[in-house]
Design a binder for these strands. Structure first.
Length: 126
DNA sequence: GCATTGACGAAGG
DNA sequence: CCCTTCGCCAATG
């Protein structure tokens, strides 16, 4: 697990922890293959259920300023809905990015989400 | 330092 | 089956 992020958030959870929860989240999200999507809960579970899925979403909020760019558009909630689209530069940006990756979005929801679902716990061999 | 909120999720009514 | 509540954990007011 590499954690070579250029600008990690200084405001990390535990000061004693060498790496923050954010770095781990970014690292996982960047490994999501194009055309695939995952959920906040799946990431949280992969990192250890100790941190709830909400923290993953919060990490995504900071991901906008993370380097390299984190494909946050591939991370959606467990219903396959693009709940975080309003946090992008434009409300339609997330949907457009997914379209670029051949992902069909209908009514703020990824079509055949279950088929496109990419589980880090499985793919990364948890 | 306490109260509220948040890109979630599971459980209960 | 739809809607409401609670739990998580950190950030912000």
């Amino acid at each position: 697990m590499k954690k070579d992020i250029n600008s990690p958030p200084k405001t990390v959870a535990s000061k004693n922890e060498t790496y923050s929860f954010f770095e781990d989240v970014y690292d996982v999200v960047r490994q999501i293959p194009a055309g695939r999507v995952t959920t906040y809960g799946a990431i949280a579970k992969y990192l250890g259920t100790g941190s709830s899925a909400r923290m993953v979403g919060w990490a995504m909020n900071a991901a906008h300023v993370a380097v390299p760019e984190v494909p946050a558009h591939r991370v959606i909630n467990r219903n396959g809905m693009l709940t975080g689209k309003h946090h992008f530069a434009t409300p339609t940006l997330m949907e457009e990015l997914l379209n670029t990756e051949k992902i069909i979005v209908k009514n703020e929801t990824v079509v055949e989400f279950e088929k496109l679902f990419w589980d880090p716990a499985v793919h990364l061999g948890l």
